[in-house]
Design a protein around this nucleic acid. Structure first.
Length: 475
RNA sequence: CGGGGUGUGGCCCAGCUCGGUUUAAGGCGUCUGGUUUGGGACCAGAAGAUCGAGAGUUCGAAUCUCUCCACCCCGACCA
């Protein structure tokens, strides 16, 4: 059995999370409070997620763009709700070039206020619409309570900012993007609960927010990505208007939507176990690791040659690495790559060379089988698929079996998971829920949006309930 | 911003209550040499620390006092 320096999930989940990040070399603490250093292995995971999402967005006709990291403070102050939401967590630049700035700059916490004044210049006619741009950027939010990947003060994300002629078009895009996000989580073998956010949980300045919520292994919720309909709120403030076919000026209907490297946090907490990371093949920096095992120089030569041939062959289809480090025992290497969540490990010694086979270990189930060299390629193909599906199914079964239906507040207890309840959607009641139970509404899924609540009475207020919502503690 | 905790070689940490056999201990890691290698190998040797910072008390401070700083955890704020 593997020994490691990782706290058991059941003993202390936050400690487990930090241990995995350290042991798998995903990230390191920075000397800057609340910021993290993402190490190559961790960054590669993000880059794989990023590549897939970027491909999906470009396929959908979105173009990439880049705006400056600084936003004139006065721009940021323009939209009333937006300011209220972000003012407390701004980093502000007061000096530049050795002199005090007359017009202070904010480091962008998000780029609505950075981009839309420019959008106003670019958009003249309805023929300029829709405008659909995306930027991959870093943003800064001076969070009170940082957490690795999930809430560092600086984080990488993509933010899409789009403008449409009509509300209908804009709202259609909200769902389209939401589905892309949901697919990205499926790509990571994580099932997402998609749907609408409550009034108090929606984005500062938005008319409506839709979200992808992930349940992770301690039963909390991670907001995986959000897609907002901004209405004409920002258009009014930044003068994003266009001349319509009717010869009159109209305000643009805008959306913004984002997915950050917080998704890496969801991935760690959604799949990881007591032995460390478990990565689905799609986002594994190393999909197959080859461990050569030899006893002396002659066996070494034969084994290494055999490994080399297999590696070259597999490298056409997979991210493969041979662990050629000398003086490290096979056992050490096994554990090393297990902690890092590599989906498949090939163990190759004289035994395999002589029988023209390979021992294949899969990380998700921790099982090993001997596979003939002639069948290796098809076996790996199937295994990769099976690992992905198994991880997805495990996460799905976990989520589905940890949602508890409740009818009143008294039923809220320390159970690990989410609660489903019929709710009046009254903001005051949500505030109370948060204060007393540190729990908030997470999402109204489409199945529940289009039907009557199971209970007519709100589980908090006893008044008329509107829909069945999910409630949970969240990161 | 409230509550709690922790700062000692690259990492984990003992020592602090009760100041002096401590030349600051141990484990991991690193380096050198050798033997090893199918589930975190072993032996021998070596390097590596202004004990978070400053001030004070004292013959003497990692240890006591004061001030400051940093980080972590639990909340409130949020992606």
């Amino acid at each position: 059995m593997a020994k490691n320096n990782i706290t058991k999930q059941a003993d202390n989940f936050p400690q487990w999370y930090q241990d995995v990040i350290r042991e798998a070399e995903l990230a390191d603490n920075s000397e800057v409070r609340g910021c993290g250093i993402v190490r190559p292995y961790g960054l590669k995971i993000w880059e794989l997620i990023k590549a897939e999402l970027n491909r999906r967005l470009e396929d959908d006709g979105v173009e990439n763009v880049y705006f400056p990291i600084f936003v004139p403070l006065e721009n940021l102050m323009a939209e009333k709700d937006h300011v209220k939401g972000f003012a407390p967590e701004l980093a502000i630049v007061t000096h530049g070039g050795g002199e005090e700035l007359v017009n202070k700059l904010a480091v962008r916490p998000t780029s609505e206020a950075a981009m839309y004044k420019t959008y106003a210049r670019w958009i003249q006619s309805y023929k300029d619409l829709p405008l659909r741009l995306n930027q991959w950027a870093n943003v800064v939010r001076w969070e009170k309570r940082p957490r690795a990947f999930l809430r560092w003060s600086e984080f990488l994300w993509q933010e899409g900012h789009t403008v449409f002629v009509s509300e209908d078009e804009a709202r259609l895009e909200v769902d389209k993007i939401l589905n892309i996000y949901s697919d990205i989580y499926k790509f990571m073998a994580l099932p997402a609960f998609i749907g609408r956010k409550s009034e108090s949980e929606k984005f500062a300045g938005a008319v409506m927010t839709k979200t992808t919520e992930i349940m992770v292994k301690d039963g909390k919720a991670v907001q995986g990505a959000t897609s907002h309909y901004l209405g004409t709120n920002f258009a009014k403030v930044f003068d994003v208007k266009f001349l319509g076919a009717d010869g009159k000026f109209h305000l643009g209907h805008q959306n913004s939507w984002g997915l950050s490297w917080r998704s890496v946090g969801a991935l760690i907490m959604g799949h990881g176990d007591d032995n460390g990371l478990r990565l689905p093949p799609n986002v594994a920096p190393v999909q197959v690791v080859i461990i050569p095992i030899y006893k002396n120089d002659e066996s070494k030569e034969a084994v290494m040659l055999y490994c080399e041939n297999i590696k070259n062959d597999l490298a056409k289809s997979y991210r493969v690495k041979t662990d050629e480090r000398e003086d490290l025992s096979p056992g050490f290497k096994f554990n090393y790559w297990e902690v890092r969540g590599v989906p498949l490990r090939l163990e190759i010694g004289l035994k395999e060379v002589e029988s023209k086979s390979v021992s294949v270990f899969r990380r998700d189930k921790e099982t090993k089988e001997l596979i003939n060299l002639s069948e290796l390629k098809t076996s790996l193909e199937n295994l990769m698929l099976d690992i992905h599906n198994n991880l997805y199914q495990q996460a799905k079964d976990f989520a589905d079996s940890h949602i508890y239906r409740i009818e009143s507040l008294d039923e809220i207890d320390g159970r690990l998971g989410w609660f489903e309840a019929s709710w009046s959607e009254d903001p005051e009641s949500e505030k109370m829920l948060k204060e007393k139970y540190s729990m908030v509404s997470r999402v109204l899924v489409p199945e529940n949006e289009n039907k009557a609540p199971k209970n007519k009475k709100c589980f908090i207020t006893g008044k008329q309930a509107k829909h069945d919502w999910y409630f949970a503690k969240s990161y």
